[in-house]
Each structure stands twice: as structure tokens, then as C-alpha cells.
Design a protein around this nucleic acid. Structure first.
Length: 591
RNA sequence: GCGCCCGUAGCUCAACCGGAUAGAGCACCCGCCUUCUAAGCGGGUGGUUGCAGGUUCGAGUCCUGCCGGGCGCGCCA
């Protein structure tokens, strides 16, 4: 089932072809002038240049070909040669009925399904998630859902950062502070068996969170300290028992906290693979890269050069093995590509990671292609901008610290409770449901504030603004959905039946045209990996519904009109809930 | 220094292969609750799209230069 934009586009393209103009110029778009038309085609202007004719003549010839089309109530030529199309009410009614009857609410699926991996979230061992993880989680989750809804086979992978120099730093720091742990690690390293591991249980996430920044800072300033951390890292990577068992403890305590945070955000991963899961692939991979002649010794390290003809500057090489013998960030990324190739065979891997890592991914992807682990175009980095504070600098709390994701969610949830109480909403609800609603409102506020912006640009995180819940916000969208649900409950109680749509009022026309635009928004979000296109649609749909709700009484209307409007309201609700779900936002039943 | 991204209303952001009068929200002003949830709806104020050129019938969008900002540039991830 095609949307009106595409259906009319085919008709206009055929008209262009019939008068000898390139058919692709007949593309139809929603009108920029809703006061004049529903759809427009600008193709006559471009065709005029190619054919050497007057644009208005071409537009007139096209309009004459379209004149008999029963779907159009008006065809007008305006300005230098715009073709303005107005759709007949009966056609809008038919389209509304089709959308209402469609389980997919008017959205198409891709012609050929692909196997896709979305790599997002990027949590790390020992570091509680902070506001910087918000975007990676929110955008990645939405892209995963959009791809899946369009029909691709999609796997979301958290790609747990659990392997590397940071682990060596942290192991060293914990051992320096906790002598009981140190003693156990040293005995295990020495090959002692049957050791009591009770000392490890005292290490918790708060310790790791506290020690990591200190250790990272000291590693930068103190050469000896850094060398020791590197040696520990190398020993961990060959699974020396003491380090390895302590590391397992780090991983376990971190994952519990991460799962709590992701759950609160409505983010689910299909896979929780870590960098450590590909550790066993690294040695054979390095040997193979060597055999292929890709590895070069340089300054004591082993690297792959990735420079290409046409580069505007010299890209650094991929560092495969450090001078200490450690696998690096890029090494595990390369091994992960190999692992995914073997285990899943993806047509596309989407890396939803901060834009600042663009160079890193370019280097890794080039190395993977050189090694034959990936084809050009198969790996794609979808970067996003940073989230800044109101001062334009990376977000910090008033105290100057990093705001933890969990704390931010709780702050927003508290604001949601306040606003619900102020508005007198949900006061007669059981406490558990009230809490559930506050949680959904908070998540909607955070996610929509992020997703309404194009992912590539940085944006300002303003807690006051995000929690205002008025205007173009997540809670506004939930509010519209809840109003429809309330209305439909009432209709059910009164035995009011939905029936065929018969469009007449301007607000009804506008609502149907907005419903019709769902597939275009979804397709754009999919093609550009840009959920903001879908977020914009969800907002426009809410607005169109709200105007319809204000202008067109439903329950007090005559039976046939009421039936038509109930169908429209139901379709709007279902499409809105679907769009919100694709953004990762859940809707409460009431609020 | 080299490279990438960005600069749109007082603020935060949109803008569909270049198209008509550059759109939303916030803030500000005016109106609308005895009728389906006012976290709502309607109306209004607010713009030389950083600057200067160029291409084009037509430029926020493409090209060049400049100004301003952010980020990245091998042994962290």
C-alpha cells in the first residue's frame, strides 16, 4: 500500500514522460504552502532548463494530462511553474481507512531484508554511565528499532568495554589500596591453588569509580606507574590467574549497575558481548595479518598502514600490537569485525559512537578491508555530537563533577512526579502506577529532547528546559496519546462504534495528510540513520491530532460522524504509539 | 600546523536530490475550560540564515576566501 505522496508522484512522473520530459523530475512533495495545496511538484522548473522551454508551458501540459485524475480535486499552476495538487476528500477518506486497517499504520518494509548489527551504548567496566552515554544509548536503540521495523534482521550489541590498558590501571590501583586483595592476586599469580577469594567480594563499583580517575591521571603523569599498568594489562591479556580473577569481579559488579541504568532507560541489548569475548581471536588474527604482509614494525610496535591515494592528509596507522605486547582498542575492534563476520555475516554494521571517534573508525574499517574481513560500505560509523552544558562546554554538574546517568534519570523522574501532582493528574491512582507513569514521563522527556535534534550536531543539555514538559517535549506526546486512550475508553463504555472515515473538516484533512506522511518520515530516518525525522513526524502527528481534538467534537457528534472520527482517533493513536516505540519511548495508559 | 564538523529569531533547535512567504518550541503579548484530560487550542511580536564574493531563472542548502566556535591528529578507550 503506497502513500499518497508516492502514488501521486507516479502519476505526475507518467505525465512528465508523456510530454517528453525526464520522468524523475515529476517527484511530488508535501506542499510548502498548505494554504494553496496538499502536494506540489517542482519538476517543471528543472525540465524547462533541460528542454529549453518555458516552465509554465511544461507545467500546463503536465496539468492537462493530470486533469482527469479522480483523486485530485484541484490542479493549479503557481509562481514560475509549481504544480499544486489538492487531493479529493474521498481520496483522503480512502487513505485514512487503509491506514486504520493496516497493522503497520501505512509504513512499508524494505524490498530486501538485510542482516544488520547495531553497536551502541558503549558501557565500560568500572565506570558508571554518565550523561555522555545518554546519546549513544538513545540514538542506537532507536536506530535498532527503526531498522527492525523496516524488516531487517537486526542485532543490538552493547560492546562492553572490558579489556585494555584501563583494566591494568585499575587492577594496579585496587592492589595498591587493598592489601588483602593484593595478597590474593599475588598468590594466584604465583600459581597457588585453592585460594580464598573472599577479599575480592569487598571490591564494589564505588571503589572502582573512585579509583579509576585517580589511576588514569597518575598514569599520564608518572612513567613508572604507566609502565606497570601496561605490564599488568599484558599479563591480564594472557590470563594470568590473579589479575584475571580480579578482573572478573570488576566485570560482574559493573554489569549489575549498567543493566539497572539501561533498564531504566528502556534500552535492551540482544548481545552483551565484550571486548574480552574476542580476546582468543587476537593471536591467530595477528599471525594471519602478519602472513598477509600487512603488519609493519614501527617504533617497537606492530602497525597496519592505511593511507590511500586521494587522502587530504596522512591518517595515522592502526596500532595492532603495542610496544608492551598489548592488544589495543583498534585490535579488539578488528577482531570483533572478524568475530561478527563469522558468527552472523552482517550485510551492514552500524557503529553508533561519538563523532570524535570518526578517525578511529576510518582507520579500523580500512584495515578490515585490507585484511579481507569486510567489504567497502559494510561498516558504517554513525557519529553524534556531544552533549554540552548551558555554558556550551561538556556537561558538568553545578559542583563541577560528572552527572551519573542514574542520578539524571532520578532527577527527571522527581520532576515528573511534581508536575503530575501540580496538574492533579493521576492522584487517584495506586502508588505503583503513579511511579510507573512518572518513570515513563521522565524517559520520554529525556529521549525526545535528544532525538528531536539531528544526531550529528552537539546540543545543550538543559535540565530545566528538559523537565518543563510543555511544548515540543516527550511528555506532550504522551499527553496526546493518553487523551486518545481516555476518549476511546469512554467510547467503549458508551458503546460507541467506530466506522468508515469520511473526511470533511480542515482539521480532519490535515490529520489524514499527516498520517499519510508516516512512511516518508520512517524511510528518511532509516536511510539517513536519523531518528529526528521520525521524532518530527511524531510531534506533527500529535499537533495535528490535538487540533483535530479541539476542532472536532467526537462523542457529541452525529453517529456516522462520530464513527468516522473514532476511526481517525484510533489510527492516530496507533501510529503515534508506534512512532514513539520506534524512538524507544513507552506510553502509559493514563496520566 | 593539518583535517573534520558547525555558525539560522532573545534562547534551544528544524528545514525532504537547490524552489513560492526560512519553520517549531521556550520567552513575551492577546483570546479560549457549565462539552471528549488546559502538560492543551487559536492569534500576535520576533530573521540581511556569521561576513564577502561566485555558479544558477532561483542558494540556509553548491563553490572560493575570510571571521568565529567545537573536535580529532599512533602505544587511553
Amino acid at each position: 500500500m503506497s502513500d499518497l505522496k508516492r502514488a501521486l508522484g507516479e502519476a505526475v512522473e507518467a505525465a512528465f514522460a508523456a510530454i517528453g520530459a525526464p520522468p524523475e523530475l515529476g517527484r511530488v512533495t508535501p506542499s510548502d504552502r498548505p494554504d494553496l495545496a496538499d502536494f506540489q511538484s517542482n519538476g517543471a522548473l528543472a525540465a524547462a532548463k533541460r528542454l529549453g522551454k518555458n516552465p509554465r508551458e511544461i507545467a500546463t501540459a503536465v496539468a492537462e494530462r493530470l486533469a482527469g485524475d479522480p483523486r485530485l480535486s484541484a490542479i493549479e499552476i503557481a509562481g514560475p511553474g509549481f504544480i499544486n495538487l489538492k487531493v479529493a476528500d474521498a481520496t483522503l477518506s480512502d487513505r485514512a481507512n487503509a491506514i486504520a486497517a493496516d497493522p503497520r499504520l501505512g509504513a512499508e518494509t524494505v524490498a530486501t531484508a538485510r542482516r544488520v548489527i547495531v553497536d551502541y551504548g558503549g558501557p565500560n567496566v568500572a565506570k558508571p554511565m554518565h550523561v555522555g552515554h545518554l546519546r549513544a544509548s538513545i540514538i542506537g536503540e532507536s536506530i535498532k528499532r527503526i531498522y527492525r521495523f523496516r524488516g531487517d534482521e537486526v542485532v543490538g550489541d552493547a560492546h562492553f568495554g572490558d579489556w585494555g590498558y584501563q583494566m591494568g590501571l585499575l587492577i594496579g590501583a585496587v592492589m595498591d589500596e587493598n592489601f588483602a586483595v593484593r595478597a590474593v592476586v599475588e598468590r594466584l599469580n604465583a600459581g597457588v591453588h585453592g585460594e580464598d577469594l573472599g577479599a575480592f567480594d569487598t571490591v564494589d563499583l564505588a571503589d572502582l569509580d573512585r579509583l579509576y580517575p585517580q589511576a588514569a591521571a597518575r598514569g599520564k603523569a608518572d612513567t613508572d606507574y604507566r609502565d606497570r599498568a601496561r605490564k599488568i594489562t599484558a599479563a591480564l591479556q594472557v590470563k594470568q590467574a590473579g589479575y584475571y580473577v580480579l578482573w572478573e569481579r570488576f566485570r560482574a559488579v559493573t554489569k549489575v549497575a549498567l543493566e539497572r541504568d539501561f533498564h531504566a532507560l528502556g534500552v535492551d541489548f540482544d548481545l552483551w558481548k565484550g571486548e574480552s569475548d574476542v580476546e582468543h581471536l587476537i593471536a591467530p588474527m595477528v599471525a594471519e595479518l602478519d602472513a598477509k604482509g600487512l603488519l609493519v614494525d614501527d617504533q617497537g610496535a606492530r602497525i597496519i598502514r592505511v593511507v590511500q591515494d586521494g587522502d587530504k592528509r596522512e591518517l595515522p596507522p592502526l596500532l595492532v600490537v603495542s610496544s608492551e605486547g598489548s592488544a589495543m582498542y583498534g585490535t579488539t575492534d578488528l577482531a570483533t569485525i572478524l568475530d561478527r563476520q563469522r558468527a552472523f555475516g552482517p550485510d551492514l554494521v552500524i557503529y553508533c559512537v561519538d563523532q570524535r571517534q570518526a578517525d578511529h573508525f576510518e582507520i579500523v574499517f580500512r584495515a578490515a578491508i585490507q585484511a579481507g574481513y569486510a567489504a567497502p560500505g559494510q561498516l558504517e560509523h554513525i557519529g553524534f555530537g556531544t552533549m554540552n552544558g548551558t555554558d556550551g562546554k561538556p556537561f558538568k554538574t553545578r559542583e563541577g563533577g560528572v552527572l551519573k546517568l542514574n542520578d539524571m534519570i532520578e532527577l527527571t523522574r522527581e520532576k515528573a512526579r511534581e508536575r503530575l501532582r501540580e496538574a492533579g493528574l493521576g492522584e487517584d491512582l495506586p502508588p505503583a502506577e503513579f511511579e510507573e507513569i512518572a518513570g515513563k514521563v521522565a524517559v520520554a522527556a529525556l529521549k525526545f529532547a535528544d532525538l528531536q535534534n539531528f544526531r550529528g550536531t552537539s546540543y545543550v543539555f538543559d535540565l530545566d528546559r528538559f523537565t518543563s514538559f510543555e511544548g515540543k517535549t516527550g511528555p506532550y506526546l504522551l499527553y496526546q496519546a493518553v487523551r486518545v486512550k481516555s476518549l476511546l475508553r469512554r467510547a467503549a463504555e458508551e458503546g460507541a462504534q467506530a466506522g468508515p472515515v469520511n473526511v470533511s473538516e480542515p482539521a480532519e484533512r490535515d490529520l489524514v495528510l499527516t498520517l499519510d506522511a508516516f512512511d516518508a518520515a520512517l524511510t528518511e530516518a532509516y536511510d539517513k540513520k536519523a531518528p529526528n525525522a521520525l521524532a518530527e513526524h511524531a510531534y506533527r502527528l500529535s499537533q495535528a491530532f490535538s487540533r483535530f481534538y479541539a476542532a472536532c467534537p467526537i462523542m457529541t457528534a452525529a453517529p456516522a460522524v462520530r464513527a468516522s472520527r473514532l476511526t481517525l482517533a484510533t489510527a492516530a493513536l496507533r501510529q503515534l504509539e508506534r512512532a514513539l516505540d520506534l524512538l524507544g519511548i513507552a506510553t502509559p495508559e493514563r496520566m
